Amino acid sequence: MDLMKTIEERRSVKNYHQHEISREILTSLLDKAALSPSAWNLQQWKVMVVDTDEAKEKLYQAANKQIKIKDASATFIILGDLNAHDAIDNIADDWIKHGHLPQENRDGLIKSVNNFFEDDMNKRDEAVRGASLFAMNLMLISQDAGYATCPMIGFDKALVKEAFDIPDNLVPTMLITIGKGQVNNDRASRYPASTFAKFV
């Protein structure tokens, strides 16, 4: 994989050809995207994969009737889990198993993480942050595999949660369409680092 080439060629594709992507391939892409970083390795992301006609229709209605929902092979509903830290006991044990944490530090880690997530803003920030890191990984991995994607924020969160029976601890962060398609115009300009970065 040529990472820079993948980054440069990734575009937000809004027009898709009819193309079926198997669930095996979609699962493989998700498995690779799960190598994303996350605070304390909490892996806050959850994903609903919308790939049937019935599910596409429901999401289409909840996403301002954007036709790419129907035309794309599938759409990922990217969710951030507010309660991901509930698994910290298991994560601590996994860290110990892999040599990342001394056994005697286990209880301290668990206490520290639980204290951090007593703050509701910390819960939400980390849920969205973890899910977003996963989402970017998923788009780059999909691009490298030959698939076009488009991140979307144009949807009604309440309707999406209702349509797919999503529990309250999962925050709809974005949608990502995936399929075969292309952009035929030039990339819009990007600000250079000199306009947004400051060395201190």
Score class of each variant (00 low, 15 high):
102 P>L: 03
102 P>M: 01
102 P>T: 00
103 Q>M: 01
103 Q>N: 12
104 E>F: 02
105 N>R: 09
105 N>Y: 09
106 R>F: 04
106 R>N: 07
107 D>G: 15
108 G>I: 03
109 L>Y: 04
111 K>D: 11
111 K>G: 09
112 S>M: 09
112 S>T: 07
113 V>R: 00
113 V>W: 01
113 V>C: 00
114 N>M: 03
114 N>P: 05
115 N>T: 13
116 F>P: 04
116 F>S: 10
116 F>H: 11
118 E>T: 09
118 E>Q: 11
118 E>L: 02
119 D>F: 00
119 D>H: 01
120 D>M: 12
120 D>Y: 04
120 D>P: 14
121 M>C: 08
122 N>Y: 13
122 N>I: 15
123 K>I: 00
123 K>M: 06
123 K>L: 01
124 R>C: 15
124 R>I: 15
125 D>E: 13
125 D>T: 04
125 D>K: 03
126 E>Q: 10
126 E>D: 15
126 E>K: 11
126 E>V: 00
128 V>R: 07
129 R>Y: 03
129 R>Q: 10
129 R>T: 09
130 G>A: 04
130 G>Y: 07
130 G>F: 07
132 S>Y: 08
134 F>R: 04
134 F>S: 08
134 F>I: 05
134 F>G: 08
135 A>F: 00
135 A>L: 00
136 M>N: 12
136 M>S: 09
136 M>G: 12
136 M>C: 06
137 N>H: 10
137 N>D: 01
137 N>T: 00
137 N>K: 05
138 L>G: 10
138 L>A: 12
140 L>F: 09
140 L>R: 05
141 I>T: 12
141 I>M: 13
142 S>V: 08
142 S>W: 00
143 Q>F: 01
143 Q>C: 06
143 Q>E: 14
144 D>I: 00
145 A>F: 03
145 A>R: 04
145 A>Q: 14
145 A>V: 01
146 G>I: 00
146 G>V: 01
147 Y>N: 11
147 Y>F: 15
147 Y>E: 06
148 A>E: 07
148 A>Q: 05
